[in-house]
Simulated scan of single mutants.
Amino acid sequence: MAARRRQGERAGLTADQVLDAAVALAERDGVEKLSMRRLAAEVGVEAMTIYHYVPSKDALLDGIVERVVAEAVRVPPDAADWQAMLVTYAYDLRASLLAHPSVVPLLATRPAVTTATARIVEGILEALGRAGLDPVNGLRLVHALTALVIGQLTTQGDGSDAGDDLAVDQERFPLLSQAVAGGAADPEARFAFAIEALVAGAAPAAGD
């Protein structure tokens, strides 16, 4: 016998589908315009019905953050190469946020503190612990990587750099002009440099 639906629930609708719709709605209209009423209309239920699937607006925002972070961490923590694991995490998080740009400011202001995201971080900390990094510094490293990813995406904008305007005056700013001409403003190269430097700098703390 099929399970009876609670009053107000729609047949065939799941919490995962509601979160998928929330992410899509945030991408289309922006997180700031996301509301429980608009989400309910998006999935075709009455406003109060949506609370059967997501208990509050805060829970909805947490669910969106969880979705993006969980999408980013696809590779199990690898104790044999913890540095590669962290680099993979950073690149996957960046790719996920590039796919969901409207979620970037949400993740920047809302810590990922759900059970699912805690499980992800726990696995990373276990791998870092086997490499000799204690949980305190391990979590600091994860936070630093996450902040670096969010920070670059937040300031990247359309890919332009403030130094580009100054580069035209080579006599006044010769070093800056040389740096920009050499590709220092390229977001891909800048990201790779920052991530590799951050992870390499953590090696002594991990016993390497």
Rank of each mutant, 00 (worst) to 15 (best):
R130M: 13
R94M: 11
D134V: 11
T155F: 08
I124R: 02
D165S: 07
A127I: 05
V121N: 02
T155L: 13
D161G: 07
Q156G: 13
L107Y: 01
L148T: 15
L93I: 07
T154G: 07
E126W: 11
T117K: 05
R140K: 08
L125P: 03
S177G: 14
F173A: 03
L175F: 07
E171P: 01
H100M: 05
D92Q: 14
A144Y: 05
R172N: 06
R119K: 06
G132W: 05
I124D: 00
T115P: 01
E122V: 01
V103W: 00
R172K: 14
S96C: 09
R130H: 13
P135C: 14
V136Q: 11
N137Y: 14
V168A: 15
E171C: 03
I120D: 01
D169Y: 11
A118V: 12
A112M: 00
D164H: 04
L153N: 01
H100P: 01
Y91C: 06
D164E: 07
L107V: 03
A95M: 09
A127L: 06
H143M: 12
D164C: 06
T109N: 11
T114S: 15
G157M: 07
D92N: 11
I120G: 02
R94E: 10
Q170C: 08
A99K: 04
Y91G: 02
T115Y: 06
L107T: 02
A95I: 05
G163V: 02
A167C: 07
T109K: 08
L97S: 01
E171D: 15
A131Q: 09
S102M: 08
G123S: 02
E126M: 10
R119H: 04
S96K: 03
L176N: 04
G138A: 11
A95Y: 02
A99L: 09
Q178I: 05
L148E: 14
A131H: 08
L148W: 10
T88Y: 02
Q170L: 14
T154N: 10
V121I: 07
E171G: 09
G138P: 11
Q170V: 15
V168M: 04
T115N: 13
T154P: 03
G138S: 11
T154W: 09
L86R: 00
E126D: 14
G163N: 03
T114L: 10
R110K: 13
R140L: 12
T109L: 07
P101L: 13
R119V: 04
P174K: 12
E122K: 10
R140M: 08
V121Y: 06
P101Q: 09
L141R: 04
D92S: 13
P105Q: 05
T109P: 04
L148I: 12
T109A: 14
R119A: 14
L107D: 00
F173K: 03
A162H: 10
L145K: 00
G138V: 04
E171L: 12
L125W: 01
D161C: 11
L97V: 08
H100R: 08
Q178L: 15
A162D: 04
L107F: 01
V104C: 02
